[in-house]
């Protein structure tokens, strides 16, 4: 029953298995950044309020500061580093949907999940999902345009 506060854990991140020894109390965000060098997920509040650390766990957006790394054993984790040429990335670039870029990875992960899960999302659904992230530079209008452009593109192809 007595176990060491640190233990070995194997996490599946961006399709790769990683075995690390971390504190059982470590959050996923801390492990991604400090053990795996995946610094794309950003600490903005460590309190689940800002969304800058959002990653996908089995496809669902989750704030990685609010989940223990050890909880994610056996699950598939996708970070911003695991997105390659996703339409939402290009849309963010083209729509000028970021400035300082700090909230961007979290915003993109959430928006990416939205466009994947809810390709027919209406304005209300977009709002419900994206109000989870705070951006301090843009007016959000640019982000809205980026997300809508990806949704529109998806609908066109169907």
């Amino acid at each position: 029953m007595i176990r060491a506060p640190k233990c070995e854990m194997t996490l599946m991140v961006n399709g790769e298995k990683h075995s690390i020894v971390a504190r059982q109390a470590d959050t996923l965000l801390f492990v991604l950044r400090n053990y795996l060098g995946l610094t794309g997920s950003k600490p903005g509040c460590l309190n689940g309020d800002c969304g800058a650390c959002t990653v996908l766990i089995d496809g669902t957006p989750i704030k990685s500061c609010m989940i223990l790394a050890i909880e994610t054993i056996g699950k598939s984790i996708t970070t911003i580093e695991g997105l390659h040429d996703a339409p939402i990335q290009r849309a963010f670039v083209e729509q000028f949907a970021f400035q300082c870029g700090y909230c961007t990875p979290g915003f993109i992960m959430n928006a990416h999940a939205l466009t994947e899960h809810r390709p027919d999302a209406d304005d209300e659904t977009i709002r419900k999902w994206l109000e989870s992230n705070i951006c301090r530079c843009t007016s959000y209008r640019e982000i809205e345009q980026a997300v809508k452009s990806v949704l529109a593109e998806g609908q066109k192809q169907e």
Partner: peptide
């Protein structure tokens, strides 16, 4: 013109002070 560091920023590769661990 698209900002020079745009692609770094949408791929999580852009580094800020606290990222240099």
């Amino acid at each position: 013109v698209i900002r020079k560091e745009a692609w770094d920023k949408v791929t999580g590769r852009a580094k800020y002070t606290h990222d240099y661990l």
